[in-house]
Nucleic acid binder design. Structure first.
Lengths: 357, 357
DNA sequence: CCTTGCGGCGGACACGTGTCCGCGAGAATC
DNA sequence: GATTCTCGCGGACACGTGTCCGCCGCAAGG
């Protein structure tokens, strides 16, 4: 009987699909329990038997059902990652680095984009899969995200928010964006600039507020009035965070009666778009105007002129995030939320220069 | 008794973690089967009871264990996606689009980076989770990937390869890269160019071979000898696909005795890097040399000069991919592999111009 | 030949769920 | 008040696995 099944399987070029340890064991003529022992490295088996099972495992490609295994109490070794989107390069870089780090620890990543509205379903799905933690990367609607965090905490699932600062009760790792903008503004002040144009930094969500805070702090520290020296036409064009928005803004800023001498970009894309916009209008950077970005993406070194910007230190962020996450996995839930701040660094290139006399 | 547990839970600010339908049912004073019926929308229940369960569901955040559910035979509604890396923007865009499309069909995406060597484990893990299909995005080692596909087929798991063309027995969706390069070369030939410089297209893996095929076809069609009119110094610098490699190449190409008049970029990054490199050397684009990219990333419209490149039509690719995938899910395995080719489009901008007389 | 021990067999249970089915309490109907 | 109907209860089974445990065939040692 057993010999028959083996022979039959070997003859047919398309062997039977094996979907359970029982089927697999029958296929190779052993008991289910014996196979299970090999899979779980239990002692008391002949080396010959172990090797026999393992070869068959490799040949057939059989894999034990993870769902059943987890049901028996083994850890799922999965975490859920909620992304604001997959279109923001720095966020994707964080995702990539985090995924790699967790992978090396044997943890798989379930990745979903958290769209406002269906976000609840996404987190519920993670919960139902009994992930060991949920990570949020990016910026989300405050109320919505806090509701998700409450749900997670109630079910005892650890969480971590990367990038978004100031959420109540949230474990957080975020760049100190205010400090980043302080660096930028101080650099420009040192170059003699006293009037600044906004490239998408006014009003809006926390990621912009943080930047404003930094700008204002830097100006006040030198005795300047933020309201008086910042100009914004951000509202003139439909808001987005891409190149084109920056280009349009530059177009609108060029003709201003009291045109600022330096322009502060919300991110590198907008700044690069503005670079193009200013050049299209016949201005030269940094001779006529200075422009700064934020994030220090690779492209910043390749534009003409190369872009002065703020580096995020993604490695630090992700390393810190992983440390927090791994620390939470086995342990009991922490009472106080863990909050870590990452220090930014100014990268001076060619797009900023002294004010022309 | 039952009233007690409810009251106790309501009193303590940290309610008990509910990890099974049984616990949840006890918590709200109902039978497990009743809760199960609500969850699975079975008839024969009073609206009042249904509402009572659903409110408790929302309040406690309880979620039935997906592993147990799948074990009972319900579909997992998950697919596995293997990425070559998360650093190639067009690949990430495909990932994002595909993930979104599948999400809207109720299918979750498990995403892993397939590093050569540990790739086997990744696919095995997908298999053990009984994903409904496995997708590969990017270019992989031929032998390794074909081994993975064989394993998948043997276990009856549908697959799809996006981007990599010509794998034996593989369901494939890929851009016709050869056709893309033909468009580029024809465009340059029309502008009078007869000598071409390689920016990272010589030798190497399939993604480069495809491009070479297209270039050679275009040249031969006009009676030119590819070997005679293509110059390459690709080997002079350590290979990578980023801006810096392009910049270095340009630096080495500038001083050539018989410097070509047009340069063909493997991708946009290398082309943009070359743009910068040529400009640093004092050349003007496109007056002195023409440069082309590949992929049509957003940045191409913002460089100075804006980059002539080939558009991938990612929407087409992903739509086709989703169509194939969704078609495979319920159905029986197809005998013949499905192969679809996506047509590229030339996008002419400012980085290409007529040869100077 | 009998004893001993090794190593594989196979039955049993639990994990959390969906589903079926018989039961019974309470309400509605006559 | 007796009958019928409604609807929730709770026992049972199966899904695939890990683990425990008693059993037994077989070979080695006395």
């Amino acid at each position: 009987m057993r010999a028959d099944t083996v022979a039959a399987a070997k003859k047919s070029s398309r062997p039977v699909v094996l979907r359970s340890t029982a089927e697999f064991a029958r296929h190779i003529g052993l008991a289910r329990t014996t196979v299970s022992r090999v899979l779980n490295q239990q002692p008391g088996l002949r080396p010959k038997t172990i090797e026999r099972v393992q070869r068959a495992l490799a040949e057939t490609g059989f894999t034990p059902n993870a769902h059943a295994v987890h049901l028996k109490g083994k850890r799922t070794a999965m975490i859920g990652i909620c992304m604001e989107d997959l279109a923001t390069p720095p966020a994707v870089r964080k995702l990539a680095a985090l995924q790699r780090l967790l992978r090396s620890r044997g943890i798989a990543s379930l990745i979903e984009v958290y769209t406002p509205g269906v976000g609840r379903d996404v987190v519920r799905h993670f919960q139902s899969l009994r992930v060991e933690a949920v990570v949020f990367i990016g910026h989300f609607l405050r109320d919505e995200i806090e509701a998700r965090l409450t749900e997670l905490t109630r079910q005892g699932t650890p969480h971590l928010v990367i990038d978004q600062f100031g959420l109540k009760g949230a474990n957080t790792v975020a760049l100190d964006r205010a400090a980043g903008m302080e660096l930028v503004v101080n650099h420009l002040l040192d170059l003699g600039h006293r009037s600044f144009g906004s490239l998408g930094i006014t009003k809006g969500p926390p990621s912009r507020i943080d930047r404003q805070t930094g700008i204002q702090a830097a100006l006040r520290a030198r005795g300047l009035d933020p309201a008086a020296c910042i100009v914004s036409v951000d509202h003139l064009h439909e808001r987005s965070n891409d190149f084109e928005y920056g280009r349009l803004l530059a177009g609108s800023l060029v003709g201003l009666a009291e045109r600022p001498t330096a322009f502060l970009g919300y991110n590198d894309e907008i700044a690069i778009g503005a670079l193009r916009g200013f050049q299209e209008a016949g201005l030269r950077v940094p001779r006529d105007v200075s422009v700064t970005g934020f994030n220090n993406q690779e492209i910043c070194g390749m534009t003409s002129p190369a872009l002065t910007t703020v580096d995020q230190s993604i490695e630090d962020t992700v390393a810190t995030a992983a440390e927090i996450l791994l620390g939470q996995l086995g342990a009991a839930p922490t009472a106080k939320p863990i909050v870590r701040t990452i220090a930014p660094a100014l990268v001076v290139r060619e797009s900023t220069g002294p004010v022309r006399a």
